[in-house]
C-alpha cells in the first residue's frame, strides 16, 4: 500500500510536473531574461534609488510557495520580486524589490522570524533542481537577512526586547562592564559561536551570507574568509529593496564566477518573517536567465522579453483537458490517501 509519505511525494511530483508543463498552479519564471546592463564607474551598491538603476530593465519574476520538501507552507506571502542588475566589468550589483507591509528584523524572541531574500546560481553546467540544487548539482546562494542588515547599524540586544530585564552578572564576561552588554571572556558559553556557527557571530561585515547547497537540507555557510558578497537592504513604505554585490569573478569553487557577454541562470527566493516563513517555507522562482552585457555600453541588451515562451504549442482547450485530468489524479490520490489512513487505523 502507498504510505502517506510516498503519496505526498507523488502528489508533490505531480504538482511539480504540473508546474513545468502547465506553468500553473506554480508561478512560472521560465523564459524570463534579466539583462545585466553595463555601466561605467561605481555601482550603486548601497543606493536603491540611484539614477543608475534606470539603466537596467526591471523584470518582475513570479514566485510561488515551495511545496516539494517538508515543512511546507502553501500560503506564502511574497508572490513576485522585481529585479534589476548592473555590472561595470569588475562587479555585479543585483537588486530585488518586493512588497512586504511588515518589517521583521529581529529574531531575539522565539516567535520572531526575519524577512529575507536569496539569489541562487547553479555551479554546474547543466541546470540542477531550481530549489536548493540537488546531489551532484551544487548551487551558490547569497542570502540577505533583515536582522543582519539592522545589526550593522545597531545590534539588537536582549534589553532592547526586554527593557525591564535585570541581571547582576553573566559568568565568564568582562567584569566591571554593564552586565547586559559585557563581552564574553570565554565564548564556550556562547555555544553556537564557539562552534563556529556564523548565525551566532557578534558582528556581521555584510548582511548577506554566502552559502553552498546540493539539495534540500544541505545548505552550508561558506567559511568566514569566503564571505565575499556585500549587500544593502532598505525598507520604505511597505517595500523592501535589497542590493547584492560581488566581484564578477571568483576563484572559489563554491562561488559562481560571472563574465560579461555571457548568459547564466539565476533563481530567487523570499521570506516573510511575519508569516513564520523560514527555511523551506518560502516563495521561490524557477530558473531565470541572467544575461551580462558586453563592456561596450552600446551593447546593452534590449529590454528583456517578458512573455515566456510556451513549452508546447497546443490549443487552449487541450490544456484545459490536461489540467482537469491532472487535478483528478491529485484529488484521487488525496482521497485514496484519506481512505488509506482510515484503513491503517
Amino acid at each position: 500500500m502507498l504510505t502517506r509519505n510516498r503519496l505526498t511525494l507523488l502528489m508533490g511530483l505531480a504538482l511539480a510536473v504540473a508546474a513545468v508543463v502547465f506553468k500553473t498552479p506554480l508561478a512560472s519564471s521560465q523564459g524570463l531574461t534579466i539583462s545585466v546592463a553595463y555601466v561605467t564607474g561605481e555601482l550603486p551598491v548601497a543606493d536603491p534609488f540611484s539614477e543608475l538603476w534606470n539603466q537596467a530593465t526591471a523584470v518582475e519574476v513570479p514566485l510561488s510557495a515551495q511545496i516539494i520538501a517538508k515543512p511546507i507552507q502553501p500560503a506564502t506571502n511574497i508572490k513576485s520580486v522585481t529585479t534589476r542588475a548592473l555590472h561595470n566589468g569588475e562587479e555585479i550589483a543585483l537588486m530585488m524589490e518586493w512588497a512586504d507591509p511588515t518589517r521583521d528584523e529581529s529574531v531575539l524572541r522565539v516567535e520572531d522570524f526575519r524577512d529575507g531574500a536569496a539569489v541562487q546560481f547553479p555551479l554546474a553546467e547543466s541546470l540542477p533542481f531550481y530549489c536548493m540544487g540537488q546531489q551532484g548539482g551544487d548551487v551558490n546562494i547569497w542570502h540577505w537577512k533583515a536582522d543582519w542588515q539592522t545589526a550593522i547599524n545597531a545590534r539588537q540586544e536582549l534589553h532592547d526586547q526586554f527593557p525591564n530585564m535585570y541581571v547582576d552578572q553573566y559568568p565568564f564576561t568582562e567584569e566591571g562592564e554593564d552586565a547586559l552588554t559585557a563581552a564574553y571572556t570565554d565564548i564556550a558559553y556562547l555555544t553556537a559561536q564557539a562552534a563556529g556557527n556564523l548565525m551566532a557571530a557578534d558582528v556581521h561585515a555584510s548582511p548577506v551570507e554566502n552559502l553552498v547547497a546540493g539539495g534540500f537540507g544541505s545548505l552550508t555557510s561558506q567559511p568566514l574568509e569566503r564571505q565575499n558578497v556585500q549587500g544593502y537592504g532598505e525598507w520604505s513604505d511597505g517595500v523592501w529593496r535589497v542590493i547584492y554585490s560581488r566581484s564578477l569573478a571568483s576563484a572559489e569553487s563554491d562561488d559562481v564566477s560571472l563574465a560579461p557577454q555571457t548568459v547564466y541562470s539565476v533563481a530567487f527566493a523570499a521570506w516573510d518573517g511575519s508569516n513564520e516563513e523560514r527555511n523551506g517555507t518560502k516563495s521561490t522562482s524557477q530558473w531565470v536567465s541572467l544575461q551580462l552585457a558586453d563592456f561596450d555600453a552600446a551593447a546593452v541588451s534590449p529590454a528583456a522579453e517578458e512573455t515566456p515562451v510556451a513549452p508546447f504549442s497546443l490549443p487552449g482547450w487541450l490544456w484545459l483537458i490536461l489540467l482537469v485530468l491532472l487535478s483528478l489524479l491529485v484529488g484521487g490520490s488525496a482521497f485514496y490517501y484519506h481512505l488509506g489512513t482510515k484503513r491503517a487505523l
Binding site: 531575539l108 536582549l158 556562547l190 527555511n279
Partner: peptide, 26 residues
Amino acid sequence: QERCRGYRKCVEACPYKKSMYRGTTQ
C-alpha cells in the same frame, strides 16, 4: 550547534517542549 540555523522546527515539534531557542546565538 554548528549546523543549526535557528529555524525552530524542533521547538515546534518536540511535544515535551524540551528543545529551546536562544535568541542571542540564533
